[in-house]
Amino acid sequence: MNLLIGLIFLAGAFAAVRAFWPQRQAVFGLIAGVTGATLLAVERAALLTLQFWAGLIGFIAILSALLVILHPNPMVSVLFLILNLFCVALFYLFLQAQFLAAIQVIVYAGAIMVLFLFVIMLLNLRVEEGLHLTGGVQRPAAFVLGTAFAGVLFWAILHRRDRPFLEPPGSAEGFGTARDLGVLLFGRYLFAFEAASILLVAAMIGAVLLAKRRLQ
């Protein structure tokens, strides 16, 4: 049964890749895949388990991340990066970080990605520019090194000490709210907070200077 769900997910993934690839439209395949998976999940009453949802979101996150780096059209990359950011925001909700989830959507999806979108529209890059891949040795080397890096990461994660790094300090009431984060930011991390504000001002001035056509 798990295998079947996995296969349907794969079909949906394939359809999604095809749908956003130039000259291919298989949106219906995507819809069918997702519906099939959902129906199966309902049948197995898996819909109510956190694991099912976490798995689904993780799957979408990885798929969208792959599309970000592999799609020839930067605009579509932006869209899938937004999808990826939403998935990570949902993970923050799983991890008791409601405030971070909201901030993730506001700052990343609402501001930074709009900036990317705006620049792509301003430069008016078209689809025909194609997939700019590095040639020669670097491409296979990148895949080998990237996979090796992932392998090392997984090895580290799977072999890490099984007990928590820090002891849980009693109850977790109100963990991850704006108030908790604010108390820390304006208390223990006040200096870092102010430094971050200076960094933002510097970045803003730098961006304006760099992008301005001519300085007077």
Binding site: A102, V105, A109
Partner: peptide
């Protein structure tokens, strides 16, 4: 309020 801001920016 944050959710409203988030979706307004969408």
């Amino acid at each position: 309020v944050l959710i409203i801001l988030a979706f307004a920016s969408m």
